[in-house]
């Protein structure tokens, strides 16, 4: 009996932690002053929050149905793989569009190629189409 009470407490803790991390990530995205600062919140805190929530769901269905299921772990794995990739692409887009940044944001876009720094998007130099 106490077994189930402890498990319920663990599931409730993971649910509330997931909601809190998700909220903190969105709060950072809404509150910070710079696009490069705003990128930090969703990529780290929101991913951790969704991981906590999927762990809670996996534990709940493990307890109620008696056998573990790999499906929630699949979503967690997929999100943990894809979140850094999309964050990298978003940061590269921000550097390309030369967004305004506050003085405290350090780093200069030295690593961009020539065709990626410019007034407007430039088509690929290979002339593969058109």
């Amino acid at each position: 009996m106490t077994h189930y009470v402890i498990l319920e407490g663990v599931i409730a803790f993971f649910l509330i932690a997931g909601g809190a991390f998700t909220f903190i990530g969105s709060l950072g995205m809404a509150h910070l002053r710079d696009f490069y600062m705003r990128l930090h919140g969703p990529t780290k805190a929101t991913t951790l929050g969704i991981g906590c929530m999927l762990i809670a769901s996996m534990l709940y269905f493990w307890v109620t149905e008696g056998k573990p299921d790999i499906q929630e772990m699949l979503i967690t794995l997929f999100l943990f793989i894809t979140a850094p990739v999309s964050a990298h692409l978003l940061a590269k887009t921000g550097l390309h569009m030369q967004l305004m940044h506050v003085d405290k944001t350090r780093g200069k876009p030295l690593e961009l190629y020539e065709e990626e720094v410019g007034e407007k998007p430039v088509p690929h130099p290979d002339k593969g189409h058109g």
């Binding site: 649910l15 997931g18 909601g19 998700t22 990530g25 969105s26 995205m29 696009f35 705003r38 990128l39 919140g41 969703p42 929101t46 991913t47 929050g49 969704i50 929530m53 999927l54 769901s57 929630e72 979503i75 999100l79 979140a83 999309s86 978003l90 887009t93 921000g94 569009m97 967004l99």
Partner: peptide, 24 residues
């Protein structure tokens, strides 16, 4: 700017996944 809106949409789909897990 445009990347800010794109970042907001990216976060919105992750949050909607959390909402769907809660519905389940």
């Amino acid at each position: 700017d445009m990347p800010d809106r794109l970042l907001a949409l990216d976060t919105m789909y992750v949050n909607s996944i959390a909402l769907i897990v809660l519905l389940g």
